[in-house]
């Protein structure tokens, strides 16, 4: 079901709890009472159109905003993606890490296997962090420069340098590899590792890994379906400009 501006925000969350972290990244807190999406967005000074595009893209994997998408400034999208990144780096990853450490301390017999999981997760964490840094340091500045060029219809020296340093096609190429390790970790824990004594904790970690993966998938859907097409269109305009 499509999320619309007249729905109650509480109903939106009842419909899909995965949206809780999403709206939080917009600076919206729970405890909505009977307020509608429009009212909540107004109160939190969130652009309603942008909010609707985002939650619908998260919520329905077949949803693909086309015309609406052109009206959202890339800088808003980038700001949102940055919020998501920081929630991965500062919350999600460390949450799982803490649990793995806890598991390590709780165990005596299989400690070395837990250490394997821990090292593996560390490896994944580093890779994801690197990927995020790459986006923040190279991709996002590029995106902002491209938008600026398109708006001004002319290229400043600084923007020319950024524009020539990268292209969105490069970005698309490397975008699938990050999830590989996360999937491997889940496979190993589900298929190959004998579960340790503290099963509750172990199950919780696996569930968190699934949720992280789902959230990452949602996140990259925004990048692939909203940001990339926008960039491709803008790159075209710039080529014609030259």
């Amino acid at each position: 079901m499509r999320i619309t501006k007249d729905m109650k925000m509480a109903d939106v969350i009842q419909m899909n709890y995965m949206l809780i972290p999403v709206i939080y990244r917009f600076g919206i807190n729970l405890g909505f009472g009977d307020k509608t999406v429009t009212e909540i967005c107004g109160g939190a000074e969130v652009d309603l159109n942008f909010f609707l595009q985002m939650v619908n893209t998260y919520h329905d994997k077949d949803y693909f905003p086309k015309e609406e998408l052109q009206s959202i400034p890339s800088k808003d999208i980038v700001a949102y993606l940055k919020m998501t990144h920081s929630s991965y780096l500062n919350e999600k990853l460390s949450e799982i890490e803490v649990l793995i450490e806890e598991l390590q301390h709780a165990e005596f017999e299989d400690e070395k296997y837990i250490l394997l999981i821990r090292n593996f997760f560390e490896g994944y964490k580093n890779e994801l962090t690197e990927h995020i840094m790459h986006e923040e340091e190279l991709v996002f500045p590029y995106v902002l420069a491209v938008e600026e060029i398109c708006e001004a219809r002319s290229i400043s020296d600084r923007n020319r340098k950024l524009y020539e340093s990268f292209s969105i096609a490069e970005y698309q190429e490397g975008h699938d590899d990050v999830e590989e390790k996360l999937m491997d970790l889940k496979t190993i824990m589900i298929k190959y590792l004998t579960p340790p004594l503290n099963k509750n904790l172990y199950h919780k970690i696996i569930q968190l890994l699934f949720m992280l993966e789902q959230d990452l998938n949602y996140h990259s859907r925004i990048e692939d379906k909203v940001l990339v097409p926008k960039m491709i269109a803008m790159e075209k305009i710039i080529t014609e400009l030259n």
Binding site: L116, I117, G123, K181, D184, T187, K191, Y192
Partner: peptide
């Protein structure tokens, strides 16, 4: 066969086995 793609994942499998 294993459903594991990354080298580090394969390494963990090798140690476990």
């Amino acid at each position: 066969k294993l459903g594991i793609k990354s080298v580090s994942g394969l390494t963990v499998y090798a140690i476990l086995n």
